[in-house]
């Protein structure tokens, strides 16, 4: 139990560091701002208590806000995403998933399922994030374009990361 907690804490810190030090410095153009730190919320075990998910989402948003000096911005987006995850899994995860307490990752659920899952949740996360950042609908289509491109790029990065870690995990197992 303690080991589990420490693993999650380590993953939390690691993801935040990757986001802040690596991904935030990918500066392709102003329409592509990928965010990979929500991966932490995506890969929480399916049977995590709903209110835990919401609280964890809120905390990770708060951590992100502290380091990007954007009070409330990431909090609002991640909390919403965490809540949405509960309903998504209620429909998209099978009974066996809940019984075997798996984490919804690419290796466990297959690429198609996982990428769709990541895309839907990240899309809503980015939607809230970018519109709240502009703080209005004055640049509606431009912001929407930014949401769309960034989501695709985030999903791509997360997918790649999952494949890499999946490989590593396989090798260490075999």
């Amino acid at each position: 139990m303690i080991i589990d907690l420490l693993t999650y804490l380590l993953r939390f810190v690691l993801l935040l560091l990757i986001q802040l030090l690596v991904v935030n410095n990918i500066e392709l153009n102003t329409y592509i701002n990928p965010y990979i730190y929500p991966l932490f919320i995506l890969t929480l075990p399916v049977n995590t208590k709903p209110w835990h998910v919401v609280c964890i989402s809120f905390v990770i948003g708060m951590a992100m806000d502290t380091f990007s000096s954007t009070p409330g911005l990431h909090m609002a987006a991640t909390t919403f995403m965490g809540y949405l995850r509960i309903y998504f899994l209620r429909f998209a995860a099978t009974k066996e998933d809940f019984e075997s307490r798996i984490s919804p990752t690419l290796s466990k659920k297959g690429p198609a399922w996982f990428l769709f899952y990541a895309f839907v949740l990240l899309f809503f996360h980015h939607l809230l994030l970018f519109y709240f950042e502009v703080y209005g609908f004055s640049e509606f289509f431009r912001t929407f374009f930014r949401v769309f491109l960034s989501t695709i790029f985030s999903v791509l990065l997360i997918g790649l990361g999952q494949i890499l870690f999946y490989r590593v995990a396989n090798k260490t197992n075999g």
Binding site: P50, W51, V54, C55, F58, G61, S69, P71, G72, L73, M75, A76, T79, F80, G82, Y83, I86, F132, Y135
Partner: peptide
């Protein structure tokens, strides 16, 4: 509905923070 209530509470809290800092120039 405790999950929803919790979510609602946290979301409103973040929005209030967001609103405050956007209007008072952070």
């Amino acid at each position: 509905y405790y999950t929803f209530i919790l979510f609602f509470f946290l979301e409103v809290m973040s929005l209030v923070i967001l609103y405050r800092y956007n209007n008072y120039q952070r």
